[in-house]
Amino acid sequence: MSNMLPSILNGHAMNEHTPLEAQVITVTSGKGGVGKTTLTANVGIALAQLGRKVVVVDSDIGLRNLDLVMGLEHRIVYDIVDYVEGRCRLRQALIRDKRVAELFLLPAAQTRDKTAVNPQQMIQVCDELRKEFEFILIDSPAGIEQGFQNALAPADLVLVVINPEVSSVRDADRVIGLAESQGKTQIYLVINRVVPARVKRQEMLSVEDIKEVLSTEIIGIVPEDDAILSASNRGMPVVCNGKGPAALAYRDIARRLSGEHVPLEIPQALGWWQRLFGKAS
């Protein structure tokens, strides 16, 4: 079914209000700490800002933190394991993010481990969610063990987050291989924490280098941005109200995912004169 979707990078004209067929998007990486959770939160919110019905799912059972990055931790009562084990209905486990129209979080359990849910159950959970939502974003744990397999199983589209460094790119290659061996055909890279000045000085792998080495399409380039840390300190992801380069990048990714054609470029921070007089000057 997902094979029949047009390549999202070509952009297909789509009325903002035509509901989309539900898509499960898994955000993964292999290597830990590269920015999966930050991306899931921001792109989820940005998609909801575009008017889409979105649920973000934390599949990092035992080490949940998507709720923290989104500032929703104090509202958790039930989690995905409670639902899978029949202690609550799916609706009861979903937490509504009141900052945007149609955004929900399905939290992971904190006190259990990765084996509390299996890939088959994850597919069933997503099939339920497909009835209600247009985008189901799954934040995968690091590694390639069961937690990763759980996140991968229901995916129509796989986003592989990479930092421009050797170990991260290598792990991404492994993850891409595993996704392909599971029959996934829609696999895209997000290059996170790019520092354009260092790429220019040839101290950092460029986007072109990474694309060539992995022979995989890129769907987003997110610059290194100091605003990310204070945003996660506050539980208020940068796309909520930020205008910095990472916020712009996450919004671009959301627009591409919802079918808009947005040229791939590295969003730059605006200088003080541009902020005063507009981008054109």
Binding site: V166, D173, Q202, E203, L205, V213, L214
Partner: peptide
């Protein structure tokens, strides 16, 4: 001015490694 063009080194190492 690039210290040693370490991006190029990274790319070559990656190609071999992969």
């Amino acid at each position: 001015f690039a210290k040693s063009n370490s991006a190029q080194v990274a790319k070559q190492r990656l190609q071999t490694l992969l």
